[in-house]
């Protein structure tokens, strides 16, 4: 049976996956749940939005992931004067060949860290988000394929509002997950303080999973079985967001697809061949929090409302 073969294949891949996870956890201390979700996002083929204060390890996490997965890493610091060409690249006239040569920008990376994405202008943001959706960029009428995999890890600072351009909801939808790292707990933070500088550690990281293996893992994840019972539960969760009074706009069908993709990837990381309600529960908040548009008078944020929905919807 193909399902069994897939399961065996996944087994072969899962051991290195867990080793990779452990390695990232050595660098990013005390964030095993977030690291797990980041891996899930990677396996589900999604882009990641990290919403947090500066200095809690967003960049470290992205770099550790890139190093562990042996991915070509690129980083762009978004500012209000950054132009799309600075991100994508420019065509330069070569007088010798009398032709325009394309000079690729930093977006041509397998893992792109887009720091403080909300500081970029809407023009810049849409250039990035288009690239995320199509996995290609177009300059002067010529399309250039982006590398595979192409994973964007964007960060934004939720507190600083001055001089920022908040991302519109439709564009937030391009991110599969939105995570909040938060401060590490006491033990982890003390260990962090006592240990070597993080950036130095990243240089020592061994590449444990190739891009090719990552692609196989992704295929294996999407081949996992989601039973009608699991789909019932996924639907119940989505439907609940559409009828909750605090929520103005609930989850879209695209969000539902993302939820199920993420749950499959989560099941794979957990070493299962089928999706459980627990998988859906584990990824639901990360999938929903940035997509839920709350009513003006609603208390709390997307994450807390999403958690409420999880608590209220019974597993069918």
């Amino acid at each position: 049976m193909t399902a069994e073969a897939d399961a065996r294949l996944a087994k072969d891949l899962i051991a290195p996956l867990h080793a990779a996870e452990a390695q990232v956890n050595q660098v990013v201390l005390g964030k095993s749940h977030e690291v797990r979700l980041t891996l899930v996002c990677l396996l589900a083929g999604g882009h990641l939005l990290l919403e947090d204060l500066p200095g809690v390890g967003k960049t470290t996490l992205a770099q550790a992931l890139a190093a562990t997965f042996d991915l070509k890493f690129g980083r762009v610091q978004f500012t209000s004067d950054l132009l799309p060409a600075d991100l994508i690249g420019v065509s330069v006239f070569d007088p010798q060949t009398r032709k325009f040569d394309f000079h690729a920008g930093p977006i041509f990376a397998q893992m792109l860290l887009a720091d403080e994405i909300n500081r970029g202008t809407p023009k810049l943001q849409s250039a990035l988000l288009e690239a995320m959706a199509e996995q290609q960029v177009t300059v002067d009428g010529a399309s250039h394929r982006l590398p595979d995999p192409f994973i964007v890890v964007a960060t934004q600072n939720p507190l600083e509002q001055s001089g920022t351009f908040p991302l519109p909801e439709s564009q937030l939808d391009r991110f599969m997950f939105s995570l909040n790292l938060g401060y590490p707990d006491e033990r982890a933070e003390k260990a962090l303080l006592g240990a070597r500088e993080r950036r130095a550690l990243i240089g020592d990281l061994k590449p444990l999973l190739s891009a090719e293996r990552l692609a196989r893992l992704r295929d294996a994840a999407q081949a996992l079985h989601a039973s009608p019972a699991a789909i019932d539960y996924a639907y119940a969760l989505i439907a609940a967001t559409r009828s909750d009074r605090r929520i103005r706009i609930g989850l879209s069908p695209r969000a539902g697809i993302a939820l199920l993709r993420a749950a499959r990837a989560h099941a794979l990381v957990a070493g299962r061949t089928h999706v459980l309600p627990e998988d859906l529960q584990a990824v639901f908040v990360a999938v929903a929090r940035h997509r839920l548009l709350l009513n003006a008078d609603a208390s709390g944020d997307g994450a807390s409302v999403a958690r409420d929905v999880l608590a209220q919807v019974a597993i069918p």
Partner: peptide, 8 residues
Amino acid sequence: APNEGASD
């Protein structure tokens, strides 16, 4: 709990 998965 109604929303508690079997493994949990």
